[in-house]
Amino acid sequence: MTAPLPRLPHALRLAALPLPLRPLSLLLGALTRRMAQAHPEMTRRMGDHADRHFLIDPVDLPWLLLLHPQGQTMTAHRRSRPPACDARIAGPLSAFLAMMHGAEDGDALFFSRDLAVEGDTAAVLALRNAIDDAELDLAGELAALSGPLAGPLRQALLRAERASGLTLHRQDDFA
């Protein structure tokens, strides 16, 4: 029914390897704060689980991402120095983006082994359900952070979406 999930080309992963982590963490932090503030029900829906640390492991990227919903932070880390966490979720970047945007079902990705989970399963479930309910839109959130560059950025993201097969905006066309 659905095509296999796209993986980022290995060359892109190698090219991203030397990128500095600090600016990346600053961008991820700003994005996380914006999403948390725009969707306060996300943290409410998670309850106590919002205070857990989630290690997001996009297996086709050179970094690990540590998310703390309660603190509204997300930081990037080298694979060689993984931070402590309560739960780890691993899978291709495309799986995370498709799930976040309502294009793929998290349980189906688990059944097909595209996603793997370790650690606090209840916290992972709470995070998954809260994000699904929030109907996030990465393209819209990035555009909102970009001020006067929002228009060109949206166009660039659309082109990147077509070229890569990644889901970069909310799938709300149920027709």
């Binding site: 799930m99 309502g102 793929e104 079902d105 998290g106 349980d107 998954r128 699904d132 799938q171 149920f174």
Partner: peptide
Amino acid sequence: QRSRAYVAQ
């Protein structure tokens, strides 16, 4: 317990 993607499909 499933996502809105499952429900829609």
